Amino acid sequence: MTLLETERLIIREFTNEDTEAVHAYASDPLVAKYMIWGPKDFEFAVVLKETGQLIGGCGIHISEPGQGEIGYCFNPLFWRQGYTSEAAASLLDFGFQELNLHRIYATCRPENVGSAKVMQKLGMVYEGHLREHMWHKGRWHDSYQYSVLKPEYELQRGRRK
């Protein structure tokens, strides 16, 4: 079982026992509004260390050799508390250190300001506005795309230590 750990979180593979907790946030229209559910190469449950409560999920998809896309989805009760940034930073660590990726990117819908702020906090660089590039839930959607390269990540990580 793959396991990542931060100061406050345990990031692990999902188990059958997680079904109810995942359904609690994944079925929330506010959450699903921004998500495009699909396969990922590494998909993890995000659990509070202190209580063992599952609060969301995150993942990294290897899109092509040397490149990965991260994503995250959390129960709205746990938004704006730094958990998403903490989990996403752990994914960057995993992608660059364990998977030896060169570039990691992420996208969000333009109206999903919270997700864009997470990417900016991680030091990801805004690459552009993808116009109506994705058909989902009966209409075309735009996305903002951010990325970070391994040398940039290593420089930022060195400054945090």
Results as ranks from 00 to 15, higher is better:
M1V: 14
L3C: 09
L9F: 02
N16G: 12
T19Y: 13
E20S: 15
V22R: 03
V22D: 00
S27A: 15
A32D: 15
A32Y: 14
K33D: 11
K33I: 08
W37F: 14
K40N: 14
E43V: 11
E43T: 12
V46H: 09
K49C: 09
T51F: 07
T51Y: 06
T51V: 11
Q53P: 08
Q53L: 10
G56N: 05
G57A: 09
I62A: 04
S63M: 12
G68T: 04
G68W: 00
F74L: 14
W79G: 11
R80Y: 10
R80K: 14
G82W: 06
T84W: 02
S85A: 11
E86W: 09
E86T: 13
A87Q: 05
A88M: 04
A89T: 08
S90V: 13
F94Q: 02
F94S: 03
G95H: 00
F96G: 02
L99D: 11
L101K: 00
H102W: 02
H102S: 09
H102C: 06
R103V: 12
R103I: 10
R103T: 13
Y105I: 04
A106S: 13
T107Y: 03
N112M: 07
G114Q: 07
V118A: 05
V118N: 04
M119C: 05
M119D: 04
Y126L: 10
G128I: 12
R131F: 09
E132N: 12
E132Q: 15
H136R: 09
H136E: 07
K137N: 12
G138C: 04
G138A: 05
R139I: 06
H141G: 05
S143P: 00
S143G: 03
S143T: 10
Q145Y: 01
Q145P: 01
Y146L: 06
Y146R: 05
Y146E: 03
L149I: 11
L149S: 03
K150Y: 03
P151C: 02
E152L: 06
R157L: 08
R160K: 07
